[in-house]
Design a protein around this nucleic acid. Structure first.
Length: 733
DNA sequence: GAGCACTGC
């Protein structure tokens, strides 16, 4: 980064500044290097370290490496580094299901490599890319990204030409994005093998069930694009300078994976050569205890177990209790706190902390604070502690064996969210949370027979959700025959057909099943096809800025905080009342965004005064900014649309059009009022109740349109507005 | 007068 000799002569001051700068740079480099050397000591102790040569050889000699390794093996941080010098001229992508993981892994790996992270320096070789936060440099060689981000990149660069290696991590979680990604990669491997720029894929999973994935890649799949002709493949080129012998691989290679390799490249080009590697994890032992008899009352059993641990087990050692939801957590918290009052002084104190996603950031932060002296923490948590949040100091896990699980019923377009038994792998994941720092214990509040009756693995999301978004992404990638797409787990044909029907109805597909002029921008928007369609419709109805504001709110958690105490009502409730619009939730959200955006002095305080979540509002503003930018790119919004909605004409003038735009995207979600006072869906004649969180709750209007149809204790409509039935004809016509 | 687990673009 030194100056070239052609630079103009510098003044003394400039010379002084530039030499100071040089000294600082030098110091910074030394800093990074000493950090790197220190970390190298720890890296060498990781279980995966001894597999380095084998992993490099496997990637060199095969198209796909399937790597299984339990927590603590070091695979997420080490594998990208092992492969770095094999791909000199291009990038390695590493996908993660969650943003925090992508960012923290990038920071860690940057330290280990000895490079600044992300965009902090043009020389940085390790970066990350997640929604709203991209941190890369021209020199980035390892890029951590969320699965959704890589899918988004794939829509813009179908060949993924900037990457020679794609590492897909945490595949065992089986998010719909990971399934989609694996299908696309299977197709892409075949395409890229024919070119000069072959692609390597590494699939990493925490469970030993690597066979399914291995078979998936090594078996041929029907071609999805008719124009491609099978070309005899060449063996993958040896693009590493290292002459590492494949012999060291033999000990680890699985015979079953090695066997089909010989024929792979010769016959059908959707087959890839696959190798399997297993790396042991590093966890402390956890002792498991089951109930002798099933329990009638899990809450009561949990209560007793927590007190037995607290009074019988030595300090320190916090307790993590896995429960189903906010309500049960708060109930148990109350019971525990009452009983803890009566504890004699012989026992340590008890600090009960709830943990669920809807909790404010500061309340969640409390689990990381050290407990006061002579106090044991009991954390009552939802599934959030299973994957997303690591609770420190836990030595005891209490597992109720249940979770709330969402499932989409495509026959009626209804989501159910019900308490169900978890899977065995989920139970083991929960148990593992007791052994992160030292040996621990896990109390399962079910019998061993109960455990044996659990499903082996979580049901992949692709079998549980609305497929319209996934199918539209496929169509946008040119996958015409979605019924024959290489799915790792093929969804039922009925579910695929239903989603195709939905896309046709939205006008996102042409009659021939190919993506339409409307479908293309919809596919690129970070929204469901329905909401994307609403955006496109709003552009023609001249209310796009307003609709973007509403859609932004619908894309984040509920902006209205729950009021559970009488005290919290009163003034604040009254202030919020000013935002309520009689037409329903959509215009109420718009009023809230406009009021928030026009508040220039203290937005946090404005939120507090109105019982509105500041976190959600900030999120909505991020989405709004992104949607506006993307709408400009898609020419839905004029380039110079700098008109702030809050300064524009009153939205009353366009309020009907706003709701009509929503009706276009949610034509199946219309219900009309019946003489008995209930609402029945226009299609299917199902009874729906307006959710208590809606401003229309308890109101009677001619007809309602809603964004979500969720079954919990009964079938509820959420995100509801009053509409006129004649709009339906108008919108369709 | 009743209540949504968790991610992600």
């Amino acid at each position: 980064m030194g100056r070239s000799q052609s630079d103009p002569p510098k003044s003394n001051d400039q010379t002084a500044i530039s030499s100071k700068r040089k000294r600082e740079d030098e110091a910074h480099r030394r800093d990074l290097d000493s950090k790197r050397k220190k970390l190298l000591v720890t890296r060498r102790q990781l279980p995966i370290w001894t597999h380095q040569k084998a992993i490099r050889a496997a990637v060199r000699d095969h198209d796909v490496l399937v790597l299984s390794g339990e927590t603590g093996s070091g695979k997420s941080t080490q594998v990208p580094q092992f492969l770095l010098d094999m791909f000199r001229s291009s990038k390695i992508a590493v996908t993660q299901p969650r943003r925090v993981a992508a960012i923290s892994l990038a920071r860690r790996v940057a330290d280990e490599v000895g490079t600044p992270c992300g965009s902090s320096s043009p020389a940085s070789t390790v970066g990350y890319s997640v929604r709203f936060d991209q941190s890369t440099s021209p020199s980035t060689r390892i890029k951590f990204l969320t699965e959704g981000m890589l899918l988004q990149e794939m829509l813009r660069d179908p060949k993924m030409s900037q990457y020679n290696c794609i590492i897909v991590d945490e595949v065992h979680e089986r998010s719909i994005n990971v399934d989609l990604l694996l299908g696309f990669l299977k197709q892409l491997l075949a395409e890229r093998r024919r070119g000069r720029n072959p692609l390597k894929v590494v699939v990493m999973s925490a469970t030993a069930d690597v066979e399914t994935i291995s078979n998936f890649f090594s078996k041929s799949a029907p071609q999805t694009n008719g124009h491609s002709t099978p070309v005899p493949g060449t063996d993958t080129e040896d693009n590493t300078a290292e002459a590492s012998s494949a012999a060291s691989w033999q000990g680890i290679a699985d015979d079953e994976a090695g066997a089909p390799n010989d024929e792979v490249n010769a016959s059908n080009d959707t087959k890839s050569s696959v190798n399997i590697c297993h790396v042991e994890g590093r966890q402390h032992p956890v002792k498991t205890t089951y109930l002798p008899q099933p329990t009638e009352d899990v809450i009561d059993t949990a209560l007793q177990r927590i007190f037995k641990i607290h009074c019988g087990e030595p300090m320190p050692g916090d307790v993590l209790v896995f429960m189903t939801g906010q309500e049960t957590i708060q109930n148990l918290q109350k019971l525990l706190e009452e009983l803890a009052e009566n504890l004699t002084r012989d026992f340590p104190k008890l600090l009960v902390l709830p943990l669920f996603a809807a909790l404010s950031q500061t309340a969640q932060q409390r689990i990381f604070e050290p407990a006061p002296p002579n106090t044991r923490k009991v954390i009552l948590s939802t599934n959030i502690a299973e994957t997303s949040v690591t609770v420190p100091g836990v030595r005891y896990v209490v597992d109720t064996g249940k979770a709330k699980i969402k499932k989409f019923r495509n026959q009626i377009g209804l989501d159910s969210l019900l308490v169900k038994p978890i899977s065995q792998s989920s139970a083991d994941q929960r148990k593992g949370r007791a052994g992160r720092e030292s040996a621990g214990q896990c109390y399962r509040l079910y019998t061993e027979e109960g455990f044996m009756s659990f499903d082996r693995d979580n049901t992949p999301e692709i079998l549980r959700c609305d497929l319209s978004e996934a199918l539209l992404k496929m169509k946008a990638r040119g996958v015409d025959d979605v019924l024959n797409f290489p799915f790792l787990t093929p969804p039922p044909r009925e579910a695929l057909e239903k989603a195709l029907m939905q896309l046709l109805q939205l006008g996102a597909l042409n009659e021939d099943g190919k993506i339409s002029k409307i479908g293309l921008p919809v596919a690129r928007l970070p929204l469901t096809p329905s909401l994307g369609r609403v955006i496109v419709e709003a552009a023609t109805l001249d209310c796009l800025l307003e609709v973007i504001d509403i859609v932004a709110c619908l894309s984040v958690e509920n902006i209205f905080l729950n009021v559970d105490t009488e005290d919290a009502r009163g003034k604040a409730q009254e202030a919020r009342q000013q935002l309520f619009r009689r037409q329903g939730d959509h215009l109420t959200l718009l009023a809230a965004v406009q009021a928030y955006a026009s508040e220039t002095s203290d937005r946090r305080r404005w939120c507090d005064d109105h019982l509105i979540s500041h976190r959600a509002m900030k999120g909505a503003m991020d989405v709004r900014k992104q949607l506006r930018a993307q709408c400009k790119q898609a020419k839905l919004l004029p380039e110079k649309a700098e008109v702030e909605t809050e300064n524009g004409p009153p939205y009353e003038a366009v309020s009907d059009n706003i709701l009509k735009a929503f009706v276009r995207g949610f034509m199946n979600n219309i219900a009309r009022l019946c003489p008995d006072g209930s609402y029945k869906t226009f299609i299917g004649n199902q009874t729906v109740a307006i959710h208590p969180s809606s401003v229309l709750f308890g109101r009677k209007v001619e007809a309602i349109m809603y964004n979500e149809f969720v079954y919990t204790s009964k079938a509820y409509a959420r995100g509801v507005s009053a509409v006129q039935l004649r709009w339906l004809e108008e919108v369709i016509g």
